[in-house]
Structures are given as C-alpha cells and as structure tokens.
Deep mutational scan, measured.
Amino acid sequence: MTSCHIAEEHIQKVAIFGGTHGNELTGVFLVKHWLENGAEIQRTGLEVKPFITNPRAVKKCTRYIDCDLNRIFDLENLGKKMSEDLPYEVRRAQEINHLFGPKDSEDSYDIIFDLHNTTSNMGCTLILEDSRNNFLIQMFHYIKTSLAPLPCYVYLIEHPSLKYATTRSIAKYPVGIEVGPQPQGVLRADILDQMRKMIKHALDFIHHFNEGKEFPPCAIEVYKIIEKVDYPRDENGEIAAIIHPNLQDQDWKPLHPGDPMFLTLDGKTIPLGGDCTVYPVFVNEAAYYEKKEAFAKTTKLTLNAKSIRCCLH
C-alpha cells in the first residue's frame, strides 16, 4: 500500500463567511444568496454554514464600524470581559468565536472560507496562513488546477512579526479568498463568478477527501510576504508620492531593483532599492491607505505537500 500522510479526520463542519468587511460585496451577495438557497454549497455528509460576519458594517456598506474585524481574533480580544464599552467588532468577534470556535479547541469548525474583495488587480487569490499544512496545500492545488487556465495565486502570510489574527483563524483550516479588482461597494459579475467557482472547487475537494480519495504528493507556487511598504510621506505625515503608473495593476509581476515604484507630484520617480527582485501584491489597495500600506513585497517559492487521505471509520 502506498505510504501517505493521513489527515486527522474527515471534514464535518464548514463555514463560509461574507461581510467580514461590509463594503466587499461579492461575499456579502453570495452568502445572502446561499442563506436563501444553499443547494449549490451542500455536499453529502458535510455541514456547510453561510454566515454574515459583520452585519452592521454590511448594512452601512462600510469596511467596519469601530475597528477591523479581520485583525482582532487574538486571545487578548477574544478574552476581554464582555461589555457595551467594547468596540462593536470586538464584541462581534467574541460572538463569532462562540459560534464557530472556540479558537484553538477541538470544537472549532474544521474549515472557514472568508470571502473578500480587493481594489487591487490580484485576480483569484487564496490566502494561506501555514506553509506546513498538507491538507490546505492539497486543497489549493486542486482549486488552482480546477480553475486553469484562469490564474489563481496563493498568498502566504506566515511571518515572524506580522500577526494578522484573522476572522477565519478560529477554524482548524483557515482559508482566505480574495478576488479583484473590484471597487468597494460595487458588485461585478465576473468577480462574483470567479469567487463562486473557487468555493465550488473547494467544496468538491472536501467531498472527494471525505469519500476516501487519496491525493498524491503535489507542489504549489506561493508568494510569501516579506514586508509592507508605506507611501513616501512629508514631515507632516502626508502622502508625498503615489503608486507609479508602471507599478499600478502589476500585482504578482516581478519588481526589480531600480524599477519605478512611486511618483511625486513634481514628476520624480522613486525606484525600488535593494538588490532583490520582489513580487508586489495589494498594490494601491483602497482599504490600506489608513493602514499606511502602499503594497506588500513578496518572494516566490514552492511548497510541497505529502499525499493525504481521509481516515475512514
């Protein structure tokens, strides 16, 4: 018999989150649709729960009410004593943790798909938090293969000092899905179709896995975050240069030392320094102006996964 890495157990509980950011409308629209008619997301033997994560922000069509829901799922915020004085999103995070967690427990949901849009030209993107997770690498390989020839990129946010504390991190297997470009507060049919297909293929993978299909060893190309880059700023902290036209919409493309990065209003080009080629992502993302992030630098690498098969009882 072929030796293989056996994944822990079959997958039982899956959640699909929309509206973690209330103005990213593809996930909101799909989740609302699936709450009314969820036939397309159901798979035999699998509990799939669509869920609106930040209903107040969705109602106002804004990213958040008090603070970013997708950055506060750490033990400090989840452990705060519940009171009306807490920011709305912290209270909501505790409610979500109660419903789908608790985080880092045996009772937490197996998989959470968190649906997002970006204003950046990132196409279909899967966000991975753990480079050693054979199950998710296999799932992402399946999704990428199923979507081809449509490109699907994998963004690895594993980093020693950049801690995200994402909404989906309460699950055993957290999956971020990011599709763009799409303006905030807008629905685009092409973007919706791409996100819908990503979810379909992900659920198909889980179904095949649960039925005992063995997935042979595989490898995927990923883009691992190195650092986030702020806009150049003046002495008052105001933005002093904008994304250069040569960099705009060039997510995932190589940016070499000396290539144009920013452009000042008086026409001066600010190039990339250093001696390493990087791959920019979230270029000129609207939501990241407040976070002082013009783009993120990534490096390209390959992740390998062992063969996996479900432990059938």
Results as ranks from 00 to 15, higher is better:
Leu69Asp: 08
Glu227Ser: 07
Pro232Ser: 00
Tyr155Phe: 07
Pro257Leu: 04
Lys13His: 10
Gln12Val: 11
Ile220Pro: 01
Glu8Ala: 12
Glu95His: 08
Glu106His: 11
Ile65Glu: 15
Thr269Asn: 13
Phe262Ala: 00
Arg233Glu: 12
Cys124Ser: 07
Ala294His: 01
Glu178Tyr: 14
Ser105Ile: 14
Gln12Ile: 07
Asp193Glu: 09
Gly267Tyr: 07
Tyr88Ser: 09
Lys253Val: 06
Val186Cys: 15
His10Gly: 14
Phe262Met: 05
Leu46Gly: 02
Arg43Lys: 07
Leu136Phe: 02
Met261Glu: 04
Cys311Gln: 13
Asp251Pro: 01
His207Arg: 10
Lys32Phe: 03
Tyr164Cys: 13
Glu214Arg: 07
Pro174Arg: 13
Met195Tyr: 03
Ala171Val: 13
Leu312Trp: 15
Pro55Trp: 09
Phe209Gly: 00
Lys200Phe: 15
Asn97Gln: 07
Ile143Arg: 00
Ile270Phe: 05
Ile16Tyr: 01
Asn133Lys: 04
Tyr279Gly: 01
Arg63Val: 05
Ile112Met: 05
Tyr155Ala: 15
Gln194Asn: 08
Gln182Tyr: 02
Arg56Asn: 12
Tyr164Arg: 08
Phe209Ala: 04
Lys80Trp: 07
Phe135Ser: 01
Asp85Tyr: 13
Tyr231Val: 02
Tyr279Glu: 01
Ala39Tyr: 08
Phe262Glu: 00
Val48Ala: 06
His5Val: 13
Ala287Phe: 12
Ile137Leu: 08
Thr125His: 08
Asp190Glu: 06
Pro149Arg: 03
Ala39Glu: 13
Thr269Ser: 12
Asn246Ser: 07
Phe140Cys: 06
Asp110Thr: 04
Tyr289Asp: 08
Arg63Tyr: 10
Glu8Tyr: 09
Ile170Asn: 06
Lys197Val: 11
Leu136Gln: 05
Thr2His: 08
Lys103Trp: 12
Pro183Thr: 05
Ala57Asp: 04
Pro280Cys: 04
Ile72Ser: 10
Tyr289Val: 12
Asp193His: 08
Asn210Phe: 03
Val154Met: 05
Arg92Lys: 14
Leu247Thr: 01
Gly45Val: 03
His208Trp: 14
Phe113Lys: 01
Ala240Thr: 13
Lys32His: 13
Arg63Ile: 04
Glu235Ala: 05
Asn23Pro: 00
Tyr288Met: 13
Pro181Gly: 04
Gly18Thr: 01
